[in-house]
Simulated assay, not measured.
Amino acid sequence: MNQEDEVEPTPPAGSVDDDARAVRRRSGETESSRANRGWWDRNADEYQVEHGPFLGDDRFVWCPEGLDEAEAGLLGPASGLPGRDVLEIGAGAAQCSRWLAARGARPVALDLSHRQLQHALRIGAGFPLVQADAGALPFPDGAFDLACSAYGALPFVADPVRVLREVRRVLRPGGRFVFSVTHPIRWAFPDEPGPEGLSVAASYFDRTPYVEQDETGDAVYVEHHRTIGDRVRDVVAAGFRLADLVEPEWPDWNHQEWGGWSPLRGHLIPGTAIFVCDR
Results as ranks from 00 to 15, higher is better:
A125D: 13
D45A: 11
F156Q: 00
W62H: 12
R122G: 12
G197W: 00
G14I: 09
Q131G: 03
E223V: 13
A94K: 05
N2G: 15
A22Y: 02
P128M: 07
M1N: 12
R241K: 05
T227C: 09
D85M: 06
R241N: 11
R169K: 03
L55A: 11
V49P: 10
A273E: 13
Y221A: 08
G28L: 00
R172L: 09
V16F: 01
P184I: 01
L67T: 11
G217M: 06
W261R: 08
I269V: 12
Y47W: 09
A125M: 11
V246D: 07
E215H: 10
G66H: 02
G66L: 05
V23D: 04
P173E: 12
S27D: 07
S32E: 02
E223Q: 09
C148A: 15
A125S: 14
V61F: 05
G260I: 01
Q3F: 13
P140H: 04
L198K: 07
V181C: 08
D191M: 07
V86P: 02
F240G: 00
Q131C: 10
F205P: 13
G52D: 09
Y151R: 07
A22I: 03
P173F: 07
A93H: 11
G80C: 08
P248A: 07
V232P: 02
L100Q: 03
S79P: 02
S33P: 07
I89L: 15
